[in-house]
Design a protein around this nucleic acid. Structure first.
Lengths: 342, 342
DNA sequence: AGTAAAGATGCAAACGTTTTCATTTTTGCC
DNA sequence: GGCAAAAATGAAAACGTTTGCATCTTTACT
């Protein structure tokens, strides 16, 4: 099983060193902390490294200080608008910090997380960001044992067990519901993804219900719909709902579902917002430009991603044993054209 | 700058070895190739490793054989439906191969690729997948020098300089144009992203033009529109186009643009396909479910991603000096409801 | 000009595996 | 039961850096 294809062509630090007529140690110092080598020497090393096309081997370095310069990101899914902006922002910000991102998806199956965490740990990640606050104990323990900082993103709770940066999803749910109430809606249906293992969706739903139950009697069960986490599924579910006696407004657990709902309406020839109002949560890419523009609760994904990256890179995350760090980013309703006053 | 937080809690192969009363070498063998250690010993090692919560350190391993178990993926953008399915499929398949994915985006700026490649190389990636066939020379050279296999995905050309797996984008462009011609359209406008540095878009455009020019005289310049790579931009551009004397059909460089075009029509109160036909390229997530369902040319992103991962993991990619490997995956028109016969 | 402190550099020992080679144990066979 | 061959294991040398300590230069100050 000998691989013929080897890293043979690659010059190492010692080649650079001998070409620059210094010791390997100095070359190493030059790369980690250029200021401590004298100007003249620095020039020579720079030149030698350039001539040879030297590329650092961070793995070898990581053997010592234990830091690989790699940060993990575990998301439920990549193939979806939901986390795209977060992932993107996170990755770009990591790059600015001279880190790289190891990413993996578990498809909303929290049990898979353990395998992923293990795989990341084997690669010596310096830290890991996850989505949401709800996770199996095992992976968290594994990370804690090895003192790898973990940061939950996307959702914020003031009583979170682990450090988090995100928006208060309960409040987001509350706000959209309140918004509809404020606009005179009284017959409101909710379309949400399965909340099992998904604290974001759960919190939103709870928030919405909380607001609604203040003004309304209990929500009849047929006004609470479960839709799978994609446009097609939501479209079908909503189409079914709307064929019957229909509510005046829809709260969608996220913008992807809202998009499906909008399509369902168009399919049925219902005008939005005249015949029915729709509000989403998330403000994903595309929500602004669809027709009609989707009124939704904006969760600042970019900001969350960037903050998460900064925190993880700067090492500002307290160990698992200490009080978690909790950063809340604000969410806010952005009103467009999918909700009517009645 | 001493970090207090260390990997101290982590047992190594030697701890496992002594607990199992074998040499470290045997433990190592157990993990790389379990079959060559005797059943009884195997049990003991298994047990010891479990007791200690041992996790392999692939970095240390990589120091020898040079393979890190990490594959890079460089995409123009993550935050976009375009590559989401590809990325997702690629990542999942890598996981099955027990590899992890290092991903980075350059935002359609090929000059940034060099920095990314360098950063990946520093982490000793075993291979890298890129999008499209057009790339700056420097990063490619860097990779070739170090014998890191490179695979271009998404686009296929029979004369590609580097190994590739993808669909023939020229043909895809040709097909959608031909499809419109077959449906009686003669006044056709094209909405494409900037083709500079984007061989996929360029090939599609060339293909479409090729088909059109067989049947039509030259395309008047006002029928060729450039739209930015996002829904909002496309929507605006198309809305402007359609306010004037409008074509009977639109060829969109990809489904994202098509989506923007659809919204533009809805904004203007144009019915699709009665007032205007729209065809896309890509068949991204959501295209099937929008209203109307988008007729488009399907590029099998999932398949491309999986093939790419397989190729990269199995080591089936010829060195840069040899004849490239070229895998074409078929594209095909999927007809839905956005094109009319006239 | 002389000396102590500060600044640069070199030496060599890590880091945690894998792997070659040598050695020991087991197996198959007469 | 003994012997050769095969299988399993062990010892130790890598892999390419970083870093503490030691050494050699330079600087700053009297």
């Amino acid at each position: 099983m000998k691989r013929t294809r080897s890293r043979k062509g690659a010059p190492g630090i010692v080649e650079v060193a001998s070409r620059a007529r210094v010791s390997p140690a100095t070359v190493s110092r030059f790369f980690t902390n250029p200021d401590i080598v004298k100007g003249a020497t620095r020039k020579r090393i720079e030149q030698a490294a350039a001539d040879l096309g030297y590329i650092r081997d961070r793995m070898a370095g990581a053997m010592h200080h234990g830091f690989s310069g790699t940060i993990g990101l575990i998301v439920p899914t990549i193939d979806n608008a939901i986390f795209a902006e977060l992932i993107s922002a996170f990755a770009n910000r990591l790059l600015e910090h001279d880190r790289t991102m190891l990413i993996a998806a578990h498809g909303y199956d929290l049990e898979l997380e353990i395998g992923i965490v293990r795989s990341l740990l084997e690669r010596r990640i310096d830290g890991v960001a996850v989505i949401g606050l709800q996770h199996a104990a095992a992976p968290l323990e594994m990370l804690a044992t090895r003192n790898v900082p973990v940061l939950a993103t996307w959702n914020y709770r003031e009583d979170s067990k682990i450090s988090c940066v995100g928006a208060d999803n309960f409040q987001a749910g509350y706000e959209v519901a309140q918004y509809l109430l404020d606009h005179g809606h009284r017959d409101i249906a909710l379309v949400f993804p399965p909340t099992k293992g998904n604290d974001r969706a759960e919190d939103r739903l709870l928030g919405a219900l909380d607001a609604l139950q203040k003004d309304l009697s209990d929500i009849p069960p047929d006004r609470l719909l479960e839709a799978l986490y994609d446009i097609g599924g939501a479209k079908k579910a909503v189409a079914a709902l709307l064929s019957g006696n229909r509510p005046t407004a829809l709260i969608c657990g996220n913008d992807v579902i809202a998009q499906g709902a909008v399509y369902a309406c168009q399919l049925l020839g219902l005008r939005i917002p005249d015949d029915i109002s729709i509000i989403g949560i998330g403000d994903f890419r595309g929500s602004a430009h669809m027709e009609p523009g989707l009124t939704t609760c904006r969760l600042p994904a970019r900001r969350i991603g960037e903050q998460a990256a900064d925190l993880l890179c700067r090492g500002g995350i307290p160990p698992a044993s200490a009080k978690p760090l909790r950063n809340q980013v604000p969410s806010n309703i952005v009103v467009r054209n999918s909700v009517n006053r009645i």
